[in-house]
């Protein structure tokens, strides 16, 4: 039924989508294998002899290595905390009707919509008075403002799909609510919990504004260090792009794993 030219156009369109999605990413990765001279060449070179020097440089740079470790510490801790706090809340929201439930939903969404700059100002002052500036803990806690909602949203959805007869059987055996949560909901909800944890990790790993404002020397995260290369007279482009690649690669792999859920994660479940 379909003409040959129709199929060809469709294929060209799809190839263009792939090129569009990957080009800036490709340009970053390929630039990370260039020498400074190759990057500064005008017009830009598409074919060149690659070098690993930039990667050798950044992994020898304590600042970059520390930043990646800091990012790992912060993103992992905040994700674990968000899951620990969010899953019980999701259980309550999926299973019970109670007064103020819709207000609670609303509050969670507002957290997703709010600009970080709104909280960055007061949290900066509070952290300053509490001597918490430039510590992991302040970032771990503030990242919970977007991570707990994301876990609650995705996991509530998952918990709602667990058939109620399972827990009725358990209840006849005398299991209390906490046991039901632990023995039935947590294992059966594991896929949703994993997806929400991955999102939480991605968002924390990518965050810049809070990290920029709340850290100094010791706890700078990877995005902060990458942007800090952007000052000075001659920019070390190769190092910058290598650092960018190292930052983006792990989250891209994570994102590809949860690609089917990407929209759900970004819209907090408004569209399935």
């Amino acid at each position: 039924m379909r003409s040959k030219s129709g199929i060809l156009l469709h294929a060209i369109g799809l190839v263009l989508i792939i090129a569009f999605s990957l080009f800036p990413f490709y340009w970053m990765v390929s630039s990370s294998f260039k020498t400074q001279a190759q990057i500064l060449a005008s017009p830009p070179q598409w074919f060149f002899t690659p070098t690993l020097q930039n990667y050798a440089d950044i992994f020898a740079d304590a600042k970059v290595v520390n930043a990646i470790i800091n990012s790992l510490i912060v993103a992992t801790s905040t994700t674990l905390l968000a899951v620990a706090l969010g899953t019980p809340a999701a259980f309550a929201l999926a299973r019970y009707e109670f007064k103020g439930k819709s207000d609670l939903w609303f509050w969670f969404i507002s957290n997703r919509m709010t600009s970080p700059i709104v909280l960055a100002l007061p949290v900066y002052l509070i952290a300053m008075y509490a001597n918490l500036l430039d510590t992991h803990i302040v970032l771990i806690l503030i990242y919970l403002t977007f991570n707990v909602p994301i876990v609650v949203w995705i996991v509530t959805d998952q918990f709602k799909s667990i058939p109620p007869d399972l827990e009725q059987a358990a209840r006849l055996d005398g299991a209390d609510q906490f046991t039901i949560f632990r023995k039935i909901y947590l294992p059966l909800g594991a896929p949703g919990i994993a997806v929400s944890a991955i999102f939480s990790f991605i968002f924390s790993w990518n965050e810049l504004l809070y990290a920029l404002v709340l850290t100094r020397r010791n706890v700078q995260t990877a995005p902060v260090v990458a942007t800090s290369f952007m000052s000075g007279y001659e920019l070390p482009w190769g190092k910058i792009m290598a650092t960018g690649t190292v930052i983006v690669l792990p989250v891209t792999i994570f994102a590809l794993i949860v690609s089917r859920h990407m929209v759900r994660g970004l819209t907090m479940g408004a569209t399935k």
Binding site: F25, N206, V248, T252, L266
Partner: peptide, 10 residues
């Protein structure tokens, strides 16, 4: 998904 996951600062 690649553009969506790319660190905004990057």
């Amino acid at each position: 998904v690649v553009p969506l996951a790319t660190t905004y600062a990057v």
